[in-house]
Amino acid sequence: MAKPTARPTAGGYSVQSLGTGAVSPHERTDFWSEHVASYQTRMDFRYAESESFRGEMTRQRSGTYQLVTWECDPVEYVRTPGLVRQDPEDGYRFLLPFSGELLLRQDDREARLAPGAGSLLTLSAPCRVLNGQSVSGAILSIPAQEIDGPLNLKAPLATGIDLTTGLGRVVNTMILSAYQEREDLTTAQFDAVLDRVVELLCMLATGDDRPDAPGHLTEVEAMVRRHVRDHAADPGLTGTSMARALGWSLRQIQLALQRVGTTPRDLIREERLRLVRDRLRCADCENLTITDLAYASGFSSASALSTAFRQRFGVSPREMRGAAAG
């Protein structure tokens, strides 16, 4: 059986490509099922044809995100109630076809996706994805907390997200560019791009990009996020200092962030943790101790950083640095 080709890059980011071209005809569907399940989660696979099946895919992966682009013959992927119980998976997937049509079913809802549209679905509930004839596309794996927190709910299937204009087109372009530049990205760069993609997806899923959305609060939220990103390392950054710097009341800022399920304090902590994560993976910051990183990223102490970091990422800063170095 043919082995996939893989190229690890700096800091744990890797690019892997595989295809059925060099696989014996009678092994092709098993080959495809095995790798799709290992990249995503356990599913049932229903193939229109077996020995003539053809498929290729490329996976880009870091410790936080995974982006898989694929092209294959017709196949139906089924996440049954039994598989949901046996193999829990609380993450999300954002699907967008480049060609052909995908049919998605979840929670008694159905979405037909053609190029220019995308959908967000959860794998913690049963679902079906029918890959039609001559379909190619991308599927972005997103940790549950990146969606549940900003949307302040367990997100249902968000269907028919328009990727042809406005914010949707920006998202589509960013995902496509992340794939096209796959060989030249570092872990920090890959994660930074997809952090922004997920942030924009949350706005699309809640309709915050619509002209009739509460425009003022949306504007406040966008400006606050930009301000926090630019000043996360400032130990004096608070909701009050943001309000003073941006010319809004603290109440306006609190209301804008409440709409997307967060607070000034939580937003500041999240951006600081992402800043530390990126610096832990950056070769230029290898000489900084964890204490140095804590103070340089706005935390009051190394212990405060370590506690918050483990709660957010499941490992300590030292452990993540060791994994990146390995």
Rank of each mutant, 00 (worst) to 15 (best):
E49L: 01
K154G: 07
T307E: 12
Q180V: 15
R210K: 13
W70G: 03
G247F: 02
G132C: 09
G160S: 15
T186L: 03
A243S: 04
R93A: 14
P25T: 10
I161F: 14
A245C: 05
D234I: 01
R28V: 03
P81M: 05
S119A: 15
W248L: 00
H26D: 14
A37E: 12
P211H: 12
S136I: 08
S14W: 10
D148Q: 04
R128W: 02
G326M: 08
Y65H: 14
W32V: 15
S33N: 06
Q66R: 12
A294W: 09
Q145H: 06
T206V: 03
S50H: 06
A111F: 11
G149E: 08
R277Q: 14
I175C: 11
M43W: 13
E34N: 14
E181P: 00
C72A: 06
R277I: 13
V193E: 07
L273V: 02
R79H: 04
P8F: 06
G314V: 15
F94H: 07
Q86V: 05
R46Y: 01
M320L: 15
S14M: 12
S62W: 09
T307G: 06
D191V: 04
A117H: 11
R93M: 12
V315S: 05
P126V: 03
T263Y: 05
S249P: 06
M43G: 05
S177Q: 10
L237S: 03
G100E: 13
E221N: 10
M320N: 07
G21V: 04
Q189D: 15
A222E: 08
T64N: 08
P115L: 15
Q252K: 07
L18F: 13
A308F: 04
S119T: 13
